[in-house]
């Protein structure tokens, strides 16, 4: 119904025009409401659903970490592994025991390595030497390396903070 048609008899048609006008208006309101509701629900459900999908990296605990597999390291060798955001050092000594330390040199925080020829841990930066109890034996390092516990569970060599 056009507005021009209403003009001649404004008082009489006011009721009917309102009820006829109300239909599209109501639809519009319902459209906005429904759209808002759907999109809002979407923006609630999407994060929740994503949250429930387990992330690939399952290991939340950083107090212990699988540093290597049994058999991965021959005797008289070592490897550096990631422990939290810092490097750790796993050593398989000649007697067949596993030892683990923080791989952060106590001198200037370089990453240390195992030297097969020395049979102990060595820091390349300033030629610091640590024995296999973590003790600083030669060179500038002022303190021993932090020592970690090593446990073997199944095939895994698990290193954990003491």
């Amino acid at each position: 119904m056009s507005s021009e048609a209403q003009k001649p008899e404004p008082t009489k048609t006011s009721d009917t025009s309102q009820s006829v006008d109300a239909m599209p208006r109501r639809r519009f309101v319902n459209f906005i409401l429904g759209g808002g509701l759907l999109t809002t629900l979407g923006s609630i459900v999407v994060p929740l659903f994503n949250f429930m999908i387990p992330p690939k990296i399952q290991e939340a605990v950083q107090n212990s970490v699988v540093a290597a597999k049994v058999g991965e390291l021959p005797r008289n060798s070592g490897k550096v592994f990631k422990f939290g955001s810092k490097p750790g050092m796993l050593v398989h000594n000649e007697q067949g025991e596993y030892k683990a330390f923080s791989a952060v040199c106590t001198h200037l925080e370089c990453t240390v390595q195992y030297r097969e020829d020395f049979k102990h841990v060595w820091c390349a930066c300033h030629n610091g030497h640590f024995d296999l109890t973590g003790k600083n034996i030669i060179g500038p390092p002022p303190r021993p390396l932090e020592v970690y516990d090593v446990d073997i569970s199944g095939d895994d060599i698990v290193v954990s903070r003491v």
Partner: peptide
């Protein structure tokens, strides 16, 4: 951006609800 988008959605919902309340 995610925050902005969801706030827009909420705004639409709020407007819809407001109009509905009037009705």
């Amino acid at each position: 951006k995610g925050l902005a988008v969801s706030l827009v959605f909420l705004l639409i919902l709020a407007v819809g609800l407001y109009l509905k309340i009037k009705e």
